[in-house]
């Protein structure tokens, strides 16, 4: 049997389709010119369409095509390539969302394991956030042991990037010395002073903390 031009859809008059169990509408471009008459013709037709379907699948895989192209009697434009692009965008997007949530859970944007930083020198401990968010309140905790008064100072340039929300406990004295703002606390067995700071600038903020003449360099990255 020879398949010539004039291919048409199988639907509507697809007796042979049903006989071959190809599925109504499942095979495209069935010949209506040389309609199969004998069992041998049907067998040949089945082989032809099986090969055709395999070629279509191979072609789709080769072109990295996910959706099969169909011809429908509707005035719509499916833009299949763009829809496949949108599908890939969705997959990448979902991965990015997972990455974003995962990194946030670990504290890449503050309040987590990754963002917390701890410095120690001469029984003085400083806890601060390396990463934080714009206009969110973060704590800078200083633990020190000293019988005498404890003085904590920051460069004015550093404090300019923050709004000091509160200091717990309140310092006994606050004064400006040169380019430093000095906070004095009464000496006790163990002092834990927490400065609650609200970042007023986005990006890298570098500074230092002086605790009883010990200098600690600190830096934060503030996300928008």
């Amino acid at each position: 049997m020879e398949f010539r031009g004039g291919w048409d859809r199988c639907c509507g008059e697809a007796r042979s389709c049903r006989m071959l169990n190809l599925g109504h509408g499942g095979v495209r471009r069935l010949s209506t010119v040389d309609f199969p008459q004998t069992t041998e013709d049907l067998s040949l037709l089945y082989k032809y369409f099986a090969a055709n379907q395999a070629a279509l699948t191979r072609n789709m895989k080769k072109n990295k095509q996910l959706l099969e192209e169909i011809h429908v009697d509707l005035d719509i434009q499916e833009h299949l390539k763009m829809q496949e692009g949108a599908r890939r965008f969705q997959q990448v997007g979902l991965f990015c969302i997972l990455l974003f949530v995962g990194s946030a859970a670990f504290g890449l944007y503050g309040n987590g394991v990754v963002s917390k930083k701890h410095l120690t020198k001469d029984e003085i401990n400083i806890h601060f956030e390396r990463f934080f968010r714009f206009q969110a309140k973060m704590g800078l905790q200083i633990q020190a042991t000293n019988d005498r008064d404890i003085s904590i100072s920051f460069p004015i340039q550093y404090l300019n990037h923050f709004e000091i929300s509160s200091i717990v406990p309140e310092p006994t004295e606050t004064r400006v010395e040169g380019s430093q703002v000095k906070y004095a606390f009464k000496g006790r067995d163990e002092l834990t002073a927490t400065f609650y700071l609200v970042p007023q600038q986005i990006g890298q903020i570098k500074g230092s903390v002086n605790v009883n003449e010990n200098t600690f360099s600190i830096s934060h990255f503030i996300f928008p």
Binding site: C11, E68, I76, E78, H79, M82, Q83, G85
Partner: peptide, 17 residues
């Protein structure tokens, strides 16, 4: 198409795609 997508045929002649 990029922002809103495009219509997509899901069933063709009773056959789900």
């Amino acid at each position: 198409v990029a922002s809103e997508g495009a219509p997509l045929v899901l069933v063709d002649d009773g056959k789900p795609l």
